[in-house]
Simulated assay, not measured.
Amino acid sequence: MTILYGLLILVMLVGVVGAVVPGIPGVSLILGAIVVWGVVQGFAGLAWPLGVAIVVLLVSIGVDFLATYWGAKQAGASKWGQIGAVVGLVLGFLGLLPALPLGGPLLGILLGPLLGAIIGEYLYQRDLNLAIKAAVGILVGSLIGNLIQGVLAIATVVVFVVSTWSQIAGA
């Protein structure tokens, strides 16, 4: 049981990283690990961790959209910039951006939204300086959202460990 618990904690830590780094599953990975532990333990003592994980997953989705929207709004970005950022994220994720010797898909996920937002804003405003400003605003908003999601993910793991440690320590 201790080995499984340790492996699930490692999976949760990958989920914490995923909450901050685009392209890696985040809170959903943490929730999945909690569910696995619940199946093994019969969900004994998991009401709080499971509830917190579900709420954090829903809040994280909202934070992602709101932070990006806030960053775009602060920088004066239009819908074109936001759409360009999403298209850039998808293209970067799928690897359609030019392959670079270092970084690969992760670099595409990071650069794709920025380049997509610049292109989208430029098509809308025809001013490169405004397009870059809007794209940076979208990027900053996304980064702030990712940091908030990371803090929420850490809190979820802490709630899980505090709630379940006695099951392991007593075994």
Rank of each mutant, 00 (worst) to 15 (best):
I148H: 00
V151N: 09
G92V: 05
G84P: 11
L130P: 03
W70C: 03
T68R: 06
L152P: 13
G120M: 07
Y124W: 14
V140P: 03
V157L: 13
Y122R: 02
G108R: 14
P113E: 07
A72G: 11
L102A: 14
I61Y: 15
L106Q: 13
L147C: 07
P98S: 12
A155W: 06
V86F: 01
L123C: 13
L152A: 12
A99I: 08
P98N: 04
I144S: 10
Y69H: 08
V157C: 14
G116K: 02
G92I: 02
N146P: 03
L110S: 09
Q82V: 14
S78Q: 08
I109Q: 12
G88H: 05
A135N: 05
A131F: 04
L97Y: 14
L91C: 12
L143T: 00
A99H: 08
I144P: 10
A72C: 07
I132V: 15
L143N: 00
S142T: 13
G104K: 14
L94C: 13
A75R: 04
L147F: 13
G62L: 11
Q82W: 05
T164L: 07
Y122D: 04
A77Y: 00
N129A: 09
V159R: 07
A75E: 05
I138L: 02
Y122G: 01
T68N: 09
I154F: 13
V140S: 00
G137H: 00
G88D: 09
L102E: 13
Y124E: 15
G92Y: 06
N129K: 08
P105E: 15
I118V: 15
S78G: 08
L94V: 14
P101D: 03
A72K: 02
S163L: 07
V86N: 04
G120V: 03
G62S: 11
L115D: 12
D64R: 08
V157Y: 11
G141W: 00
N146G: 09
P101S: 01
G62P: 10
L100M: 14
A135H: 03
S142R: 05
A77L: 01
I118Y: 04
V161D: 04
Y124M: 11
I83K: 01
Q74P: 04
G76F: 13
L147P: 00
I119W: 13
